[in-house]
Computed example of a mutant assay.
Amino acid sequence: MNALRRLEGIDWVRWGLVAMPSLFAIPTAPKWTWPVIAVVAVLSLPVLLFDQVSRPPWLLPAALILLIAATGSLWVLHPNGFTSVSMFAATFSTLRSFGRITSALALLAAAATIMVWSIREQLTWVNAVALLSVLIVMILLAANRRSRVERLEQTQLALARARTASEEHARAAALAERARIARELHDVLAHSLAGLALNLQGARLMLVRDGASGEALAQIERAQKLASDGLSEARTAVAALREDVVPLERTLSDLLAAYRLDSGARADLVIEGEQRELDASVVTMVVRAVQEALSNTRKHAAGAAVDVKLLFGAEEITVTIADRQGRRPPKAPAEGYGLRGMGERVALLDGTLESGPGEDGWLIHLTVPA
């Protein structure tokens, strides 16, 4: 699991709007309403960790619905305080962050509270409609915020794709230049060194036939060895010039950003250990594994959150991919071609792959030497 981040100012403001009006009502509220205030205080705790509570997935929505009901009840029981602020704040937090069903339940609870309060206080229908219009304003504000967040994510994804396209263009140009240099090295230098080594071999044999001195033979042998070593180094340089390693972190981040935009679900990447340059085959295998896992999540657990963790060990790299379905999925009757291909790629690198149902979703765990 990810480490809890430090609480920020917005966390305290959100919690204060929900909890403090009810807590400040204690001195003037009847003692028989104190249990309701205690319930509000307990239910407000998940709000303080709003962006960190993800498991189980029903906890935060259920807490907010109950919080709306509790603060609404307190408002009806103690109408002279500011407890209505708590109810409206909890309602807005629900509308801006959750789907239709949860939002509908929140609106139903808030509207019922307003109607009960209006009847008890004998408000005119104009005042009652004015209170209900506050909920309409909240719906509009929540929809505007959702649209703004979606546009921001689309902009970030577009920037990421543009950056990736620019990097790919630059990489393609660099690869083309490296390929040209590699061809020149191979066709000119390597061929010349190979021909030189053969000529030196022939010269040595001729000197041996003609009974040349040992010093002359030694010089020829040293020159032949230098030519052979140069040829080996030239071939190594050609191989290095033709190899290009994919930037792993950037590629995985782009994959998860695309998944977030497509599904609307959370998708996080955590990297632990000391990062280092990996072999191209290892990088390609990890990218293919994450692609296959995200494809399976879209197919079998649409909308599930995804956690990807990369652990750089001393001699291996470990990758864990987990989707958070909120329940233990049934075991697949047979391994699909995607997982089978993933296992074959891991096996080619002398690694291990484990795949199966986890505590609250499907879990893939692989380790390869790196």
Results as ranks from 00 to 15, higher is better:
R55N: 06
S118W: 06
A38H: 02
L105W: 05
S103F: 06
V39H: 04
Q122T: 11
I114Y: 04
A257L: 13
E344C: 01
A29V: 03
M115D: 07
M285G: 04
T102Y: 00
V308C: 01
D187L: 05
M342C: 11
N2K: 13
Q224S: 11
W117N: 03
S263C: 07
A29S: 05
L278K: 02
V319A: 00
L256H: 14
F98S: 05
A176I: 06
E243A: 14
R100Y: 07
A237I: 01
V308A: 00
G336M: 14
A227Y: 02
V270A: 06
Q325F: 08
S263D: 09
L196A: 14
G195M: 13
E153R: 13
E168N: 11
R163F: 05
E359S: 13
S192P: 00
A172L: 06
T94Q: 01
G273R: 14
A19Q: 00
V149D: 01
E233W: 12
S84E: 05
E292L: 07
A63I: 00
L59Q: 06
W34N: 01
N127L: 11
H300K: 07
N144I: 11
P357M: 05
R145C: 03
S263M: 14
A179G: 10
E243Q: 12
R145W: 10
D229H: 12
D307W: 13
V39P: 00
V85Q: 12
L256R: 12
L59N: 05
D210V: 14
A158I: 05
L207H: 07
D262H: 08
E150Y: 04
V208T: 15
T71G: 09
A190W: 05
S22F: 00
A182T: 06
E354S: 10
V270D: 09
L74K: 03
G326P: 03
L108G: 12
R6A: 08
L226E: 13
E121C: 06
D244S: 13
T28M: 10
I181V: 13
L248Y: 08
L132R: 02
A334F: 12
S147G: 07
V282L: 11
N127D: 15
Q219N: 08
L64I: 04
F312Y: 14
W125I: 14
